[in-house]
């Protein structure tokens, strides 16, 4: 579904990603794991069109992404759940969700998708008229995922959904990710919380200092000594 070939990207003269090639197949959940500053967020921003790559090819279902601005990439079926949730704190939960369906391709299904999000996250229905900024971190993450689903995407990009959340809440967030998977969404997730994320995805890539250094099935990675040593402190 998503194919990246030899992507180089960065900001100004600073290069954050070197020769990244990865792919995500339909129905899969794939993680990109790596420490702070490895380039995980840059990778997400490049795919969603917010940062232009220096070079390389990106394709979504055979269509090249490089020429599209962010709002059109959403129309191609890629929804981005940004780092730190990035809700519109001064708006109600429902308005936040409705904005997720702003893309032309999503407007007609807006009511149906809203119903679906409320079904998926009943908590959001309870809080529909509350200001998004006044909710707890876990609920905000729910709202951010809901907003992304509102655009009716084929592929969900999730940027560190566990960042800045209490350990108990992190558990809940990963069970949200599992729910999303069960609903049939294809997911590409970047995370630092390696142990947890490897339990909800099929495959993972290891990103370090802007380069992919390893990849494999999550089961194998969980058992691999080098991963256990480098990322889990075991």
């Amino acid at each position: 579904m998503l194919d990246l070939k030899g992507v180089n990207a960065g900001y100004g003269s600073f290069q954050a990603l070197f020769d990244i090639s990865l792919n995500v197949k339909a129905g899969e959940a794939v993680a990109v794991i790596g420490p702070n500053g490895a380039g995980k967020t840059t990778l997400m921003r490049v795919i969603s069109g917010m940062t232009e790559p220096f070079s390389g090819e990106m394709e979504m279902e055979g269509k090249s992404l490089s020429s599209f601005p962010p709002h059109q990439i959403v129309e191609l079926g890629i929804a981005h759940v940004p780092e730190n949730r990035r809700l519109f704190p001064g708006m109600s939960v429902e308005d936040n969700l409705k904005l997720g369906a702003f893309a032309k391709t999503a407007r007609s299904d807006s009511a149906k998708n809203l119903e679906f999000v409320y079904e998926l996250f009943p908590r959001m229905k309870e809080r529909r008229s509350q200001l998004a900024g006044t909710m707890s971190g876990g609920e905000q993450q729910m709202c951010a995922i809901g907003r992304a689903i509102m655009s009716g995407p084929k592929l969900l990009l999730m940027d560190e959904p566990s960042a800045g959340l209490a350990p108990v809440v992190v558990q809940q967030v990963f069970s949200l990710v599992r729910r999303i998977r069960e609903e049939g969404y294809t997911v590409l997730i970047v995370e630092q919380n390696v142990q947890q994320v490897l339990q909800v995805v099929d495959r993972a890539y290891l990103l370090e200092a802007g380069q992919l250094i390893d990849s494999g099935k999550s089961k194998d990675l969980l058992e691999s000594d080098s991963v256990r040593k480098a990322y889990m402190g075991l």
Binding site: S48, G49, M50, P69, P70, H71, V74, E75, A79, H80, V81, P82, R86, L87, F88, P89, G90, M91, L99, G100, A101, F102, A103, A106, R147, A148, S151
Partner: peptide, 11 residues
């Protein structure tokens, strides 16, 4: 409120 998040929402 947030330009990047708006772009991510398809605006």
């Amino acid at each position: 409120e947030d330009e990047d998040a708006s772009a991510a929402a398809g605006i």
